[in-house]
Every structure is written in C-alpha cells, then in structure tokens.
Amino acid sequence: MAEPVEIDRAAVRWTRQDEALPLLVLLHGYGSDERDLFSLVPFLPEGVTVASLPAPLGAPWPMPGRSWYPIDELERRDPASVTAAAEAVLRWLDAEAADAPSIALLGFSQGASVALQTAREDPARIAAVVNLSGYAAPGDLPGDAALRERRTPVFWGRGSRDDVIPPALIVHTAQWLPEHSELTGRVYPGLTHSVSEEELADVRRFLDGWLDGLQAPAPEDPLDG
C-alpha cells in the first residue's frame, strides 16, 4: 500500500472559483507543474471553472518539476501509487469543489493515468475524462464494475510516434477503455509525446459535448404519471 500524498492547495492555479460552474481539473505530466497545462486555457470551453493542480511529489534530481508517482513504477501490475495520487485528487475535490455541479478531468501522460484512476476510484463523481498521451493503470479496482456500467465518456488521444509510454501499456489501454467507458479515441500521425493543435480542437469538441449534456433535459421516467 502506497503512503498517502497530498495536493498543495496554495499552488493550484484557477481561472476563477465559482462553485456554480462545471469544474475542469488539469493534471500535468511527469517533470512539469501546475503552470504547464494552464497554458491550454485559451483552447478550452468557456463557461467552466478550470483548476490546474500540482502533483504531490517532487521529480527526482536532476529532473525539474513534479510527479504524481515514481516513474519506475510505470509498468507495475500493482496500481497502489497511481491510486494514492487519485485519492489525493479526490480529497482535494472534497475540500475545494464539493458543490461543483459536474467535474471533468484532463490529464497528460502521468496526469492522464491519474485522471482515469480517479474516475475508477469514484465513478459517480467524475463526469468525463480527457487522457492525453496517457494510459490506464494495470490492475483491478473495486470501482471498475460501476465504471463499466456507467460508461463515463473518455477521450484518449496519442501520437503515432510516442515512444514514451511502453507498448504493453498502450495495448492494455486499448483493450481496457472500450470495456469500461464511452470511448472517443484518436491516434495523430507523426505526433510524439506531446499535444497538437489538431488534438486540442478534438478535445474542445469532446468537452463541449460534456457541457451540452449538462444542459439537456433529463429523460422522463416512464413510470411517472
């Protein structure tokens, strides 16, 4: 079992703090920090609160920035360290976004794996996940069956020339996501371990769909009346 970790709440970057708006949480990649994905705000939908979180661990010297879990645990079958990071995100949500009407997560690389793990830990809480150049952590979690039933919308985008994520994890994710989510997936020819404007346009459309779904009227219960 991994040791609990915590998000530095003072370091979180916000576009605004408005609990009446849907919340989009950004989870950066290994060796980066909360300032990185915050630069994507101009590409993201309006009408949401955006919060960019710092990972709880420092990356080992001489790597700059921060990490969500030790990089040498990338291919472990035991997802305990990824789960510890996801639990830290959920505790942060408890403290800072308990009344948000809907929550989506957008992560890159390590942050993407934590975003998926957070949805697996609490399927009812996370309405949508954007997985950029990331993967689904191996291993089973108690929430996986509920996630499979709920069919949470997930966008998975990756580059055809991304050689950072091990092939075995890509194969695992390609099998796991369609079984556990409503998957929108795309591979971008020539893209490395990075994000392109083309991919960001696809992300914007996906997130617009999340927001449109919040405005749609609830279906009538056939048992009413």
Results as ranks from 00 to 15, higher is better:
residue 77 R to P: 00
residue 78 D to W: 01
residue 79 P to A: 00
residue 80 A to K: 01
residue 81 S to L: 03
residue 81 S to D: 02
residue 82 V to F: 00
residue 82 V to E: 02
residue 84 A to F: 03
residue 85 A to R: 03
residue 86 A to K: 01
residue 86 A to E: 00
residue 86 A to C: 03
residue 86 A to W: 01
residue 87 E to F: 00
residue 88 A to C: 05
residue 89 V to A: 02
residue 93 L to S: 06
residue 93 L to K: 01
residue 93 L to I: 07
residue 94 D to P: 04
residue 94 D to T: 10
residue 97 A to I: 05
residue 98 A to T: 04
residue 99 D to N: 04
residue 101 P to K: 01
residue 103 I to H: 05
residue 103 I to N: 08
residue 104 A to W: 06
residue 104 A to F: 04
residue 105 L to K: 03
residue 106 L to I: 07
residue 107 G to K: 03
residue 107 G to S: 05
residue 109 S to N: 10
residue 109 S to H: 12
residue 110 Q to Y: 08
residue 113 S to H: 01
residue 114 V to I: 11
residue 115 A to Y: 00
residue 116 L to T: 04
residue 117 Q to I: 00
residue 117 Q to G: 07
residue 118 T to E: 08
residue 118 T to S: 13
residue 118 T to V: 09
residue 119 A to N: 05
residue 124 A to F: 02
residue 124 A to V: 08
residue 125 R to K: 04
residue 126 I to R: 06
residue 128 A to N: 11
residue 128 A to L: 07
residue 129 V to E: 13
residue 129 V to N: 11
residue 130 V to Q: 13
residue 133 S to R: 06
residue 133 S to D: 09
residue 135 Y to H: 15
residue 135 Y to T: 15
residue 135 Y to Q: 14
residue 136 A to M: 14
residue 136 A to N: 04
residue 139 G to D: 10
residue 139 G to R: 10
residue 139 G to L: 10
residue 140 D to P: 01
residue 141 L to H: 11
residue 142 P to T: 08
residue 143 G to Q: 14
residue 144 D to H: 09
residue 144 D to Y: 13
residue 145 A to D: 15
residue 145 A to T: 14
residue 146 A to S: 12
residue 147 L to W: 07
residue 148 R to D: 14
residue 148 R to Q: 15
residue 149 E to R: 13
residue 151 R to D: 08
residue 155 F to E: 07
residue 160 S to N: 05
residue 160 S to Q: 11
residue 161 R to E: 15
residue 161 R to T: 07
residue 163 D to H: 12
residue 165 I to K: 07
residue 165 I to D: 05
residue 168 A to D: 07
residue 168 A to K: 12
residue 169 L to A: 10
residue 171 V to G: 07
residue 171 V to C: 02
residue 171 V to W: 02
residue 172 H to Q: 13
residue 172 H to W: 13
residue 173 T to L: 12
residue 173 T to D: 14
residue 174 A to S: 14
residue 174 A to V: 10
residue 175 Q to F: 05
residue 178 P to F: 14
residue 179 E to T: 14
residue 179 E to L: 15
residue 179 E to R: 15
residue 179 E to C: 07
residue 180 H to I: 11
residue 182 E to F: 13
residue 182 E to V: 02
residue 183 L to R: 08
